[in-house]
Simulated assay, not measured.
Amino acid sequence: MVDPSRMPVVTMRDGRGLHVRVVGKGMPVLLLPGLGMSSMLWLPFVWPFAHRYRFILPDFRGFGRSSHLAIERDDVFESHAMDVRDVIAHLGLRDFLLGGISLGGTTALHMNHRAGLDGVRAYLHVEQSPCVGNRLGWRYGLFGERQDTCFDEFRVFAGLLGQYPEARELTDLPPSERARAAESLARIAAWTFGTPRLEAPLRRFFLLPTFLAGRFPLSLRDARTYIAAYLAGGHDYRSSLRNLAMPVTLMIGMKSTPYPYPGQMAIAESAPNVRVVRFERSGHLPLFEEPAKFVRELGRFLEHGSRASSRTTNGLP
């Protein structure tokens, strides 16, 4: 079994090294993290299965041990998708299981939309909408019906950062602007977790010296890039969902604020072979809110995926 502290470095097409954890032995399983998530957070959930599966856990640019890497392109989803394809090529993955949570799910759908998911035997999709921006006939993007209000807060935060283009961390902002940034971040985080009462304590937390010393999981440089990507309103992957020919496990937090249940169910309604797992007590993070159930359902995904015929994988040109 591979030591979980082992940190292979995969060289990307821009010559930079992306850190990837590799844990276990057996059939390869590539798991893509959410926004701000270190690959280390997968370890408690994958460890029970590490005797049968080899888990490949990349740290996306800007996070974890890849926090020093700048996002390569203005389109964050394209940048992450290119990196994932480099990881697949570097490790020679040809018959494997794929999973993604939140941003990782968007990245997987982006890859499928661009060129298919060749070599993927089964796919796990956790808490993500197939269309980020609301539009005519679709109100299930990021934050659902409240998207306009939340995106206005994004614009406030982006406008604040725009006044200090050289700032890289919260500590680089003047104290008054730092307080405004903390207020904006707290409001966005409270909406994300679906708990308005968190806004006041989060605002105080974001101003703690230890937090400002570098614990914010996103540099201001990358925050600008993500905000621009979300406000662009693109990234509609609904038309390519039917091409997910492999077995798909769709995990939904029934109390999710960022991505309403009906929007996520569009995946089940379009892809041909989907098993839906509902987490009745969870919001956007079912792996942390209902961990025992998540481990159990992850085990089911792994077992069913390992038995799936490789002929069902998606190999679009």
Rank of each mutant, 00 (worst) to 15 (best):
T210H: 12
D83Y: 03
N273P: 02
F55P: 01
L241I: 09
E169S: 15
H68E: 15
V132S: 04
V132F: 15
R307A: 13
R311P: 00
R94N: 13
H68W: 07
V46N: 01
D236A: 05
I101G: 05
L287N: 14
E297A: 07
N273C: 08
A229C: 12
E269F: 05
R52V: 02
S5D: 14
R187W: 09
E199M: 06
M1C: 12
R311T: 12
R54T: 12
R52W: 00
F216R: 03
V22R: 13
L103M: 13
G299M: 02
E289N: 10
V274I: 07
G119V: 03
P317H: 15
G62Y: 02
D14K: 13
T149G: 08
R180I: 04
L103V: 05
V20D: 13
Y230H: 12
R139S: 11
E145I: 04
Y53T: 10
L103G: 01
H284S: 05
R204K: 04
R6C: 13
L35E: 10
A271L: 06
L250R: 08
Y237W: 11
D86M: 07
I88A: 08
T313Q: 12
D86V: 09
D3N: 15
G283T: 04
E72K: 14
G24H: 03
Y140W: 13
E280C: 04
F55V: 04
F205E: 08
P209V: 08
H113V: 00
Q163D: 06
L57T: 04
H19N: 10
G92V: 02
P58K: 00
L93G: 08
T195Y: 07
H51M: 09
R121C: 11
R238G: 07
H90E: 14
T225P: 00
T171K: 06
M254A: 12
F77G: 00
P209K: 04
D3F: 04
R197A: 09
G119R: 03
T195W: 06
R155V: 05
V276F: 11
L98G: 06
P48Y: 03
P48T: 01
